[in-house]
C-alpha cells in the first residue's frame, strides 16, 4: 500500500511538470500570430494620394487644365487624408514611420487630351474601387467610402 501510495503521489507531483512541458511544447511549435488582413481602405487611400499627385503635376504641366486638375487634386488630397486617418484610427501604426510612399508619379502628359483622359480614367477607377467596397463595409465606414465614391463621380462631371 505504501509503495502504491508513493507512486500515486509521485504521479500527481509529476503532473504539473508534464503539463508545463506540454504547454512549453505547444508554445514552441505554435505558428506566430498571422498578421491581420490588409485594411481595404488603405488601398483607397493610396489611390487617392496617387491621383492627387498626378493631378497636381498636371496643374503645372497643362495650363489649359490647371483649374480642373486643381479641383481634382484638392478633392483627392482630402480623400487620401480622411481615408488614411480612418485606417490609422482603427489600427494605429505600430511605429511612427510613415506608410511606404507610393512610386513617384510618371511625368504628366503635356498634351491636354491625354492629360484629360488620364484624369478621367483614374477617377472612373477610383469611383468603382470605392463603390465596390461600400456594400461589404461596417456601417460606420460605409458613409465615408460612399461619399468618396460619389465625390469621384462628381469630379468626373467637372472634368466634362
Amino acid at each position: 500500500m505504501n509503495v502504491a501510495r508513493r507512486d500515486v503521489l509521485r504521479g500527481l507531483a509529476l503532473l504539473p511538470v508534464a503539463g508545463g512541458l506540454a504547454v512549453g511544447t505547444v508554445a514552441c511549435t505554435e505558428e506566430p500570430e498571422p498578421p491581420p488582413p490588409p485594411d481595404p481602405l488603405a488601398d483607397l487611400a493610396a489611390s487617392a494620394r496617387a491621383d492627387a499627385d498626378a493631378a497636381t503635376a498636371i496643374v503645372s504641366a497643362v495650363p489649359a487644365l490647371a483649374a480642373v486638375a486643381g479641383e481634382v487634386a484638392a478633392a483627392r488630397d482630402e480623400h487620401a487624408t480622411a481615408l488614411r486617418a480612418e485606417v490609422d484610427r482603427e489600427r494605429p501604426p505600430v511605429s511612427s514611420s510613415t506608410p511606404p510612399s507610393s512610386a513617384p508619379p510618371a511625368d504628366p502628359p503635356a498634351d491636354e487630351a491625354a492629360a484629360r483622359e488620364l484624369l478621367a480614367g483614374s477617377l472612373d477607377a477610383a469611383h468603382q474601387q470605392a463603390a465596390d467596397l461600400v456594400a461589404g463595409l461596417p456601417a460606420y465606414r460605409a458613409g465615408l467610402v460612399g461619399s468618396v465614391a460619389a465625390g469621384c463621380a462628381s469630379l468626373r462631371v467637372v472634368l466634362g
Binding site: 479641383e71 465615408l144 460619389a150 469630379l155
Partner: peptide
C-alpha cells in the same frame, strides 16, 4: 469648385 469632396457628409 463645383464638386464636393465628400457629398452627403
Amino acid at each position: 469648385p463645383a464638386a464636393r469632396a465628400f457629398p452627403g457628409q
